[in-house]
Design a protein around this nucleic acid. Sequence first.
DNA 1: CCGCTTTTCGATAGACGTATAGATTCTATA
DNA 2: TATAGAATCTATACGTCTATCGAAAAGCGG
Lengths: 215, 215
Amino acid sequence: MTTHVPRARLVRNSKPLRRSDEIIDAAARVFAERGYHGTSTQAIADVLGMRQASLYYYFTSKEAALEAVCLRGTDGFVEAAEAVVKSKGAPLEKLARLIAAHLSPIETRQDYVKVFINERRYLPAASRRRLGRKTRAIERAFEHVILAGIADGSIVRGTDARLAMLAVLGMCNAVINWRPSDQGKDMARIAAQFAKLMANGLAANGGGARMARAT
Amino acid sequence: MTTHVPRARLVRNSKPLRRSDEIIDAAARVFAERGYHGTSTQAIADVLGMRQASLYYYFTSKEAALEAVCLRGTDGFVEAAEAVVKSKGAPLEKLARLIAAHLSPIETRQDYVKVFINERRYLPAASRRRLGRKTRAIERAFEHVILAGIADGSIVRGTDARLAMLAVLGMCNAVINWRPSDQGKDMARIAAQFAKLMANGLAANGGGARMARAT
DNA sequence: CCGCTTTTCGATAGACGTATAGATTCTATA
DNA sequence: TATAGAATCTATACGTCTATCGAAAAGCGG
């Protein structure tokens, strides 16, 4: 049944990463849809039209595959967030950019991010801690910007920065689990409305400085 | 090893529901911690100090247990939300009450709600649809109040009500997956800050009508 | 075409997991 | 205390799943 699709070996990229990328990608897809424990290695192999045992040429265990997927799920997040923090601009503007930057991978690498968010808790403690560092870095970026806003008076006094950070991130991360019909919305529009919501929600002044309206 | 704890049969409640409640409760606990597919029926039995096979006296299948847990996970949500919608008050005040009402079960019945939110997708289509009705009812309640706010001018024109609803619910539901240290925060405080955030975030006027500050 | 490396395959060990069946024990009540 | 029904147990059938192993096949430089 499963026709042997001869693997395109004709990649310029010298590193022997192409095939294993396909494997991770298949794993991401199935993990995202059925969850880690709901996925059998057989199901991953099926996506690729290969035999279940062959996967073990690339991965030492199913857990290792989950870790690889989760790691890619965080790719870019931290770098993008920290770049925004270091950039110039008012805290509330930075927050808007943080939100946009955070939503972007959710759009472009859905499966990886979804697995990272929903399944990382099934990783063994060691790798979970490794990933925890990334999570905390992102949280820190958001919290830092909010604290800066409180400090310079643009965000209302008495705001619990950590709580506000958890609120924004909860809002943003939830997108990954929206129904497909809702996820279909234009991501730029989502980012804009989220940013407006948070900027106005946190703003200290009575009004003047409302953000420009979303397009 | 497992001592036979003679079951307290001395309940006034005539219905034979006590023991099966304990079973659902144990299932909720383990499903919440390890996920549905990560949980063996043996693990549930262990919590109760009973034999794995004995569970099947109460449930026809593991899936049925998941459905029971999920159903309880929605208990009260819809009723509370619809009561708020029907009550008197300005839309933004209602929204604040909706948020508080929505967060309350998250505090008092963590395991059930967590399973409902994270694991309901593993239910067979039939029961998933049943639960979908409840989800949609809650969403409708939030959306309805937001639409009312747009209609009466208290919420800024151009707001995408559905998007705003998804934002609030995402923010609220995320609480269930917070780290224990964050979850330990006073839930009333969380509700207050979330409500303030959304009220100010959505408010149409330049400022005047800001909500009272959180205590 | 040869031999070496990379990749995939077939077969299977061994653990685990769900669910069923019938025996056994418990509890309450006549 | 004898009996009926509820609750739990033991044993096990039967499927599935991860991971290993050695053989086969494919790709490639000489």
